[in-house]
Every structure is written in structure tokens, then in C-alpha cells.
């Protein structure tokens, strides 16, 4: 593993190693406090994403390393027209590893072609966001104690929501996975995700527009935000944004040990009254993101 651009570049075994390492970091943080001493992580965020950037920076700091970088394109030389290739070639001579967020899809792949240091894709437009998927997999593993044999509901914007595409793809490799795809007709999971990952792995899946109907069957409910920036048309956004809101009322029909996940930030798709419900795992999920990023940084830097 030289870079991480797409979650599907990792084998199930490599993902398991990262999960095991993240769990070890959670249990024995003191062992890892100086593992990246004198190492530098550059966070190149060509579009703002405070949560993801802080998660990467906290991860590097907890490993004893340092961070440098920029948090939006206006404060970088890309605003002067510098290419991704040049930016990465220069920054790679200062830093030991780069986490990069870019609004254009495929920008991190360009970066890998011009970088001697590992590149982590921290999100490229609506395309990939592999550390989010690693976070999700770690969370499911911690909450359920396994990744096999789970019935997972994916709810909300399944068309534009890249986190659900990657999660559906990643979960398709685990035996006994069953996917329940809950979305309005306009925001269904694209057929290429089904044809490329779900069907070839013989994963059972059902599609529905009704969350209430399937609530009681789910082991995990993964909620997503209907994102304004993924729509070309404001009218469509306003019409669909409130389609699926999770409330305490709806949660009454869920299993006592169902896990509610969300990549965050949420707008109103999960009512805040659920935050205190022990089944609500989304804040634990955010915290897990830091640990899996620590594990990933260690692996990519080859630090034992």
C-alpha cells in the first residue's frame, strides 16, 4: 500500500489489519505517542472540510508528528493557477505524507503520479472518500463485534452520496451481508454500484422508499444527508431534502441493539432527541475516524 485513493484498493485482509491496529491504538494510546516523531503530515484541502481536516491533524498529533497545510484553495497557490501536479511535487519535498481534499474528481490520482510520498485521498468531489469508509467499517466492527452477516440499511441520498457507494461496495465483500436501500425514487443507488459490487458478490439487497417498513429488520441504519451541493437544481433539493428524517418515534420500531450511523455533518435528517439513545453511534463514529486515520498513517509511513 503506497497511497490510498479508493477503498476498493484495499483487500479485506488489509482492512482487517487497519481495524486491528486502530483498536490497539484505542486500547493502548501511550504505545503510539511518539511513533511519528519528527514526521510531517501535509493537509492540502483545496476545498474546506473542517471535520475531516481536524481528524487527520489530530491523528498525526496523537502520533507525535507535526502538521502543515492549507484549509481552502484561496489560501494556496492553486488560486494563482498552480496545477495539482506542481503543488504536490513541491509539498512532497516538505512533508512525509499528504492528505488531500479536492473538489475535482480524480485529483488525488493525479497527485499520486507526481508524488514520492504517500497520498491519502481525503475526498475528491462526489467520487471517493476512503477514510470515511474505513471509519464506517471500524465503527460497524466495534459496535456489532463483526462485519459478517449484518443487515445494513442505507438511507437518504443514495444517488449522490459517495459514502454510501463506497460502504455498499466495501460491505459487499463480507459474507452474509444484506443491504436494504432506502431512498426516494429520484435518489436511488446508481446501477453501476449494484452491477460492479453488489451483484457480482451475490449480496442480497432490497430497495424501498419506506423507512418505517424495514426499520425493525435492520442491524445497522446508515443515514445520509441530502446534500445541496450535489444538485444542479435548487427546486429538486428543496423537494427532497426532508424525505427521510429519523425521529424517536421511528426508532421505537427498531431493534434494541440497532446501530445508527451518519457520516456527519447532519442537517435535520436525525432528530437531536436521538443523540442520547445508546443506539446512536454517529459521534462515536466521528471519534473512530481519528483512530483509523492514525492506523492508516502508520501503515503508509511503514512505521511499526
Amino acid at each position: 500500500m503506497k497511497h490510498l485513493i479508493d477503498i476498493m484498493e484495499l483487500s479485506v485482509e488489509e482492512i482487517q489489519e487497519l481495524i486491528a491496529l486502530a483498536e490497539d491504538i484505542m486500547n493502548f494510546p501511550e504505545k503510539y505517542r511518539e511513533k511519528c516523531k519528527y514526521k510531517k503530515l501535509a493537509t492540502l484541502f483545496f476545498e474546506p472540510s473542517t471535520r475531516t481536516r481536524l481528524s487527520f491533524e489530530a491523528a498525526m498529533m496523537e502520533l507525535g508528528g507535526n502538521v502543515l497545510g492549507f484549509s481552502d484553495a484561496n489560501s494556496s497557490s492553486s488560486s494563482k493557477g498552480e496545477s495539482v501536479a506542481d503543488t504536490v511535487a513541491v509539498v512532497g519535498s516538505y512533508a512525509d505524507i499528504i492528505a488531500m481534499r479536492h473538489p475535482k474528481e480524480g485529483a488525488p490520482t493525479v497527485a499520486t503520479m507526481h508524488s514520492d510520498v504517500p497520498i491519502i485521498n481525503a475526498g475528491d468531489g462526489g467520487h471517493n472518500h476512503p477514510t470515511q469508509t474505513l471509519t464506517d467499517l471500524l465503527t460497524i466492527s466495534l459496535e456489532k463485534g463483526k462485519l459478517n452477516g449484518l443487515k445494513i440499511g442505507l438511507c437518504g441520498d443514495l444517488k449522490f452520496g459517495r459514502t454510501v457507494h463506497s460502504l455498499a461496495a466495501a460491505m459487499s465483500r463480507y459474507e452474509g451481508t444484506e443491504l436494504v436501500l432506502i431512498s426516494p425514487d429520484e435518489l436511488k443507488l446508481p446501477s453501476y454500484v449494484k452491477n460492479s459490487y453488489i451483484k457480482p458478490n451475490n449480496i442480497k439487497y432490497t430497495q424501498t422508499t419506506n423507512l418505517d417498513e424495514v426499520m425493525g429488520e435492520l442491524d445497522v441504519l446508515y443515514m445520509t444527508r441530502v446534500q445541496r451541493e450535489r444538485f444542479f437544481n435548487e427546486e429538486d433539493y428543496l423537494r427532497l431534502k426532508d424525505s427521510y428524517i429519523l425521529t424517536a418515534e421511528k426508532m421505537r420500531n427498531a431493534k434494541a441493539d440497532m446501530t445508527v450511523m451518519h457520516p456527519l455533518p447532519r442537517v435535520n435528517e436525525i432528530s437531536t432527541e436521538i443523540d442520547k439513545d445508546k443506539r446512536a453511534a454517529y459521534f462515536r463514529q466521528a471519534r473512530n475516524g481519528k483512530y483509523i486515520r492514525m492506523a492508516l498513517i502508520l501503515k503508509l509511513l511503514g512505521v511499526e
Partner: peptide
Amino acid sequence: KNPRCITTTEQDI
């Protein structure tokens, strides 16, 4: 043809 693709903005790609 994807308007969100990096090839639409990156030079010499």
C-alpha cells in the same frame, strides 16, 4: 465529459 473531473482543469494532463 464529466464537468467535475480533474481533467477539465489540470494543465498538461
